[in-house]
Amino acid sequence: MIQLVDVTKTFDRFAAVKGANMMVPKGAIYGLLGPNGAGKTTLLKMMAGILRQDRGTIAVDGEDVWENVRIKQRLLFLPDFVYFFPHATIRQMADFYEQLYPSFSRGRFLELQSVFALDPNKKIQQFSKGMQRQAAFWLAFSVRPDVLIMDEPLDGLDVFVRRHVKQLLIDEVVEREMTVVISSHNLRELEDLCDIVGLMAQGTVRMERDLNELRAGMHKLQAAFRGGFPSELAERLDIVHREERGSIVLLIVRGEKRRIEETVRAFHPLILDVLPLSLEEIFMYEMGGDAHVRETVVG
């Protein structure tokens, strides 16, 4: 659906994005993770056709985004600081969106009024920051875009609204196969939402992983053996991390869950628990040597 190849963007002499590659399949929720200043916002703005890349290609459905009205009509960008016309009300903004986006749904707009509980006839600038962000979500969901690109969208929303918004997002993805790209500097915020996570640091996308594959491909074991941990077993497992706590050994092992279990059971463990790994842990072990990225995402 969205493909970025070797995208580079330099401001004056500062290279914000340096040869970034990225692939977002249709109907996926893609989380773009990275510390402040990693180039996430620049990358998203290029994806939305706001900024033009110096080099590389950005394509949605195989078409260049830049100055492409057909693509941009199906794509909506929600910035980190939402913008509305001065003195505009939500209703006026909705009228504006309706004229610009063919997919805008008046019915959806009215339907969502009960969810967001904002006065559509009040000037948006009189709202609090969090309410303004809700207004932006309201409008964005009413546009019903095929692609929704959001820059740190959940900042400043309370837990209740955040849950609502996440649910709405998931519904849209399930019902209409909407494609979502969402950036954050906080892994935990994306954990229960994303299908794919891309890690960005210093202007490049360092890695891109399918979360389900990641979860299925790495496991935490807690086991105890008579006579200590058998060295033969260590050779037969792809161990990422090993930690002994008295007679119990804690292992982070890469591989398929069933096969790992079979392998370990062959050595007749006294105890064997297979525990779930948090996304944070997976990333920590996955990143291994990339200390910079590890620190910024997990720390």
């Binding site: 939305a48 100055e67 941009k72 009509q73 913008y83």
Partner: peptide, 9 residues
Amino acid sequence: DFIHSLPIR
């Protein structure tokens, strides 16, 4: 940013 994200050439 806002105006240039809109679908207008």
